[in-house]
Nucleic acid binder design. Structure first.
Lengths: 206, 206, 206, 206
DNA sequence: GGTTAAACGAGACGGTACGTCTGGTCTTGTA
DNA sequence: TACAAGACCAGACGTACCGTCTCGTTTAACC
């Protein structure tokens, strides 16, 4: 589905039940045994499926993991995701980042998300799919919120929203992935404040 | 024999030539065949070394990769690393970040660094070693440069230097690792400017 | 539906073209790729036929091979096969055995016949069918020729014709199947002479 | 051992226990589940051995079966096998052939021997090994017995002993392998008598 | 300076998983 | 309803590595 690699099988005949069983099994196994021990054989066995059924539809283990995330995120699909907009940008961002911190710290999701992140790091095709299907919509939601603040005069007019988003979420993801420091709510708060104000001294008190 | 979990090998008898051959082979193989196909067997064969010699001294493939990086970075050791300090913080940061961008884009180092980054992401012990031995010294150098600017009144007095460093380098690393966008010199410039000024509008010009 | 073990397909609707295509494909593949690599899938693909069509009509790979031979031998059917009868038994037998040797040495037929022989060795049902449909008629022809000689006083009156036939053709088949020695015209001649005269010394010169 | 196929492994380091376990497992499985269902995986599992240990030392499934037979026959090795020699050739041959019939009818050995026979039929290299290591010594014993009779004037002077042996044992093996008729002691007797006397009428009474 | 114990190269071993291939069954149009 | 097409579950194939375990063979420290 994500990426074709050989004579495309006839998708019309595809068995939806098997597809779901595979993705569910993959995600569950990631939680239970971790990324290092995840195997196609294991997924197939857990899903009650022949190995070939996995190889037929996915080009790599990473693609399976990716689709597993896609399936999860599609439960709440239809409407695009949106960040809260109370008018108070700092408060809204703080709330969202604290939630992100909580999710990243949730042992339930830690392993699977690391698996996805590192598969993406090694597989450009997967990275492209990730940017388009999973990260893209989220990033747009973030940018919408910032644009709204920008229109309200709360952000610099010439602000590069791409950079802005990465300056807020980048440090968080980095600290999580590389474990370069504790990932706490306070840290999230700090990041928001510092990003909004910048490193330079503000002429008037902040 | 202290609190080691197994009979500690006698480091005095260790053959330095084999150690270097292994680390060199590991790094070279990473460049040539990539992380996914890197195997202990392959490293041993390339290094002309028995497998046991690897297993004797390193607990995991990630640890070998890590030491390979350590060996490289130790060529220029003795003096701690330092960032340029011309007095012009923005210029200095821009220069450093552009160099970083160039390095991350260098195909020679791309694969090995990704390998290290993802091994760290999955192995907390390795992450700790990384923070202490490789990233730590670098981070301190970065903080020293920022502290110097802070003392010169170019940065906010109450700035959290940890956060500041991550706000500058985090977006870069993230964009590289996740391939979420092009990694160019312009991007580096943007990040520096935006980080220094913050997202909010500045009362006076610029 | 008689005593069949499963829902008998309606033979009336059977497509003759598919049947022939399957048997031809099976035989050709045996020649080309050999018995070890012969697969139902391969036969179906070569015949342009669905796998199910094979499974519907044949219980095993051996049965397909068997029918392939049957089809070949049915080209010359109608009249039962017969051995030459010039009155000179030894000459007739020698001629027939030399022809058999030539056929067994023909690389075109070697592989398929070995396949049939070994399938029969492992499958009693198939062996029964072979004895009845393929080997039976031939054996009767052989016995007819021997009986004719017997009536002419050239063979012992109390000769067991079953044993006689096997004593002439058995050594040949054995040597072919087990490759226990070179299979030449001279060998055929030797077998005929020795079988006719027996191992014991003949009172008068032979 | 039987046949090398690639960079020869270091036979000195070979583990004898594993070799025996593999051959024993192979033979036992042949008896229990039959040739068609015999798999390398199954042998390895039963022997408590890694698959690679089989692939390292044997080029094919047939070679394993062959060596299993070789191991069995080597229990009684040292002295070469010999046929009984009471002076009465017909009686001796009858006894031996009856014993052969009994063995071929023993369900314990039927499957394994068929497996060996058909592997040989499809693999010339294996056939050569069989002729040399297993069948050869036996055939020589048979020929020794016939030669003894020949010296005693009980067999024709110009008898080709190769042909003679095949004329006695060939029919038996053929009937067994192809199931072309019942394999009984009476049949064995018939074959001996007919082979000794030949098909032609004997001038004087028997 | 001969002894000895550890590290070494080599590589066989019991295993796990790979990605492919085939066996048989089942399903979905088409004729 | 037989057929071609081919997806499906199942599991064996032969290969690649895993991490452990001998093997001799250096090699360095201690006698």
């Amino acid at each position: 589905m994500t990426t074709q690699h050989r004579a495309t099988p006839n998708a019309a005949r595809r068995k939806e039940a098997s597809r779901r069983a595979i993705l569910t099994a993959a995600f569950d196994l990631l939680q239970e045994i971790g990324y290092a021990k995840l195997s196609i054989e294991g997924i197939a066995a857990r899903a009650g499926v022949g190995k070939q059924t996995i190889y037929r539809w996915w080009p790599s283990k990473g693609a399976v993991i990716f689709d597993a995330f896609l399936m999860l995120s599609e439960g709440s699909e239809g409407e695009p995701p949106a960040l809260p907009d109370t008018g108070d940008l700092e408060a809204d961002l703080t709330a969202v980042l604290r939630a992100t911190v909580a999710e990243l710290n949730d042992p339930q999701y830690d392993q699977p998300m690391r698996a996805l992140a590192t598969e993406i790091a090694h597989d450009p095709e997967l990275a492209a799919a990730y940017v388009e299907r999973l990260d893209g919509p989220l990033k747009e939601a973030k940018q919408r919120r910032l644009r709204s603040a920008q229109r309200a005069g709360q952000l610099a007019e010439d602000l590069n929203l791409d950079v802005a988003v990465e300056m807020i979420w980048g440090p968080l993801l980095n600290r999580w992935l590389q474990r370069s420091g504790p990932l706490t709510a306070e840290y999230a708060d700090d990041v928001v404040t510092t990003a909004l104000n910048g490193l330079r001294p503000r002429p008037s008190g902040r």
